[in-house]
Design a protein around this nucleic acid. Structure first.
Lengths: 214, 214
DNA sequence: GACGCGATAGATCAATCGGTCTATCTATTT
DNA sequence: AAATAGATAGACCGATTGATCTATCGCGTC
């Protein structure tokens, strides 16, 4: 894959107007691939970004490269949001983890929530060799590490295992949000499940489960 | 040429002859929409089913109608599988529910597992007016009812709520399976989570959680 | 001012999209 | 045997797919 690195700092001084074509393309693709899926046409992307056709192939080598780059950027942004949510919740790992679940429940209940972008990409890109799959795997790995750190700080006997459970919970919550059961908001159910996952690792917990206790 | 009996208005009784075009189309579409997503081309479907182009529009009115019908049929089949799994597990609701999770964990770990067909359809069909969405909602509703019945038989204080949790768990498990974390099989994590969901409703449980107790 | 690079517009490409059409063939029904 | 309904093959439709091309334009740097 050949993609050229552009000197943005040159344009950065005059960037008060509007970003370059590469940036515009990324922004438009980030939105359109979420609302319309990764199957959006190149023409739609170019029109939405107001960018010449050639720029796409100059910067990303093709549609697949653009999609992969969109996923990469989204990964960085979303991981930062996870961190921000946890940091805003304080220092207690338990509070930090539950804050993530609550926040996701809020997002998934939003009117314009369209499901998890990474899972949607994995399911839509039926070609397993698509470069996007590697990005989504890295995303999940990062998220898993994020959770594992908190469980470790919590003193959880099996932090990686608990992170697995929390990841399943998150995926299920986002899936339920995407399915939009208009009468049954999944946030409450997910919240209680998350509490159990977290509390199962508390050493001094009064609700210790003998099956999972060390 | 292969001869065929014309009795196919009550199909599914004679298996030795090859099914009619409608049935062939459904079978081919069921497989292709799963492996290649609902975005498969009509030509691929027709070629795989060895069916004339016109038959598609005669029987289903178009691609959307075919997809919706495929989802309907899959729903019926999958719900039957859920029931069969539970019935094979005996009469104890606890055992029956855990058997479902175990079975799904096995399926999700299979080499040709490509994720939940219904969630994939919901995410891929970005047009919210697509007839497929109604089918997937009905599927989830049926599944939820299936779970609720078991939780009710279990004496769970909040059977619908527990069914919500189990549905989230199932979706998360299938999502994790679709993401294929090559080193971290999600079945074990899901299993323990399922045990908690189920046991939280056991009246005589020794591990009763005061936060969730009535 | 000349140069060069990045971006632009847009023609063009073969391929495919979903869908409609005519014509023919086959099998059953009357 | 004639009539009829179902299925087939395949041409055909306009639109769109992702991608490559030429040509021009804008702008900053020599």
């Amino acid at each position: 894959m050949i993609y050229r690195v552009k000197r943005w700092h040159n344009h950065a001084m005059t960037a008060s107007v509007r970003p370059g074509p590469r940036e515009r393309l990324l922004l438009a693709a980030q939105e359109l691939t979420y609302t319309h899926g990764v199957g959006v046409g190149v023409d739609s992307l170019l029109k939405a970004a107001d960018v010449a056709r050639r720029s796409l192939y100059e910067h990303f080598g093709g549609k697949d490269g653009l999609i992969a780059e969109v996923l990469r950027r989204s990964t960085a942004e979303d991981v930062a949001k996870y961190r921000a949510t946890m940091d805003a919740a304080g220092d207690d790992p338990r509070t930090r983890l539950l804050a993530v679940v609550d926040q996701l429940g809020r997002i998934a209940a939003g009117p314009d929530f369209r499901g998890c972008r990474y899972l949607a990409a994995d399911l839509a890109l039926t070609d397993q060799e698509h470069p996007g799959h590697e990005v989504t795997r890295a995303y999940r790995h990062t998220l898993h590490g994020l959770f594992t750190d908190e469980f470790t700080a919590l003193g959880h006997p099996r932090p990686a295992f608990a992170a697995d459970q929390l990841l399943i919970l998150v995926d299920g919550l986002l899936a339920a949000g995407a399915a939009r059961p208009e009468d049954r908001p999944p946030a409450a159910a997910a919240r209680e499940l998350a509490e159990h996952i977290v509390d199962a690792g508390l050493p001094a917990a009064a609700t210790a489960d003998p099956a999972t206790a060390p």
